[in-house]
């Protein structure tokens, strides 16, 4: 059947660029030539010897870790407030929390560039964190919100009647029961933050080049297989995170 073959071709096209990267990263030649059967870890060694990449990788990890952690914490509190209370303007507030999804990266990047400069925060780590929190908050909020809604309120009341204050109830009952959703939210936020390119390109200078930015700048200059090795590692990393997310069911509420 034609459809079947067509689907095969399309699936192959989807994967082709990624497969090529991985393939290239394991060949010793400086140029990618087909056919090639040689195998080498040369470019991985190069990648780790190149301090720029390692620094960028660590920066990206730190940035994604810090912003995802803060975003998850704020999102948990906000989700709790939205799920457990009735107050005027709740719907609008929820829409506001999700609204960063609606604003294109370019637009937010331009706004942040000018904003951060006017505050004298240009080229600082915490300016990046602030931007990343805004970007990833909707992704953290969605799974946490969904999970919290599934926790019966009576569980919390049971804890309270047994002598737990609201804070202790939150820590000892609500949070542990929502752990899965919170973890999903955190991983998703981490993933999105780690992958963010556009906003960072607009708002940061040379001192804070995250890994994707480093690759971007490298690509505009030259192509050498070191990038392939790093990209292959990035693909591997997102693969691992996605598998974990899929395991804990985090992709379902997040799927668009």
């Amino acid at each position: 059947m034609i459809l079947r073959v067509f689907n095969w071709v399309m699936a192959a096209v989807m994967l082709a660029p990624l497969v090529l990267i991985v393939w290239m990263s394991f060949t010793p030649a400086a140029f990618f030539r087909l056919p090639t059967t040689e195998f080498s870890l040369r470019w991985y060694r190069e990648a780790f010897n190149y301090p720029g990449f390692l620094n960028s990788f660590l920066l990206s990890l730190r940035l994604a870790g810090v912003s995802a952690a803060i975003a998850t914490f704020l999102a948990f509190l906000a989700a709790y407030g939205l799920v457990r209370f009735r107050f005027p303007g709740k719907g609008a507030l929820e829409a506001f929390f999700m609204s960063p999804l609606l604003v294109p990266g370019v637009v937010y990047g331009i706004a942040m560039l000018q904003f951060v400069n006017s505050l004298g925060l240009y080229n600082t780590f915490w300016a990046l964190v602030l931007a990343h929190i805004a970007i990833v908050v909707p992704y953290a909020l969605r799974p946490i919100h969904a999970q919290l809604r599934a926790v019966p309120e009576d569980l919390e009341w049971a804890a309270r009647t047994l002598g737990a204050t609201r804070t202790r109830t939150l820590l000892r009952v609500t949070f542990p029961i929502c752990a899965r959703g919170v973890l999903s939210g955190f991983l998703l936020a981490f993933l999105i933050s780690f992958a963010e390119v556009t906003v960072v390109i607009f708002m940061t200078g040379p001192a804070y080049q995250t890994l994707p930015i480093r690759i971007y700048n490298y690509l505009t200059d030259q192509i050498d297989p070191t990038v392939a090795a790093i990209s292959a590692m990035l693909i591997g990393l997102s693969l691992v995170l996605i598998l974990i997310l899929d395991r804990i069911g985090g992709l379902r509420p997040a799927a668009k």
Binding site: W157, A158, L162
Partner: peptide, 14 residues
């Protein structure tokens, strides 16, 4: 609630 010392058994057990 938490200072009342009244223990409640919920319909859903909770």
């Amino acid at each position: 609630v938490h200072a009342r010392n009244t223990a409640l058994v919920f319909q859903s057990y909770a």
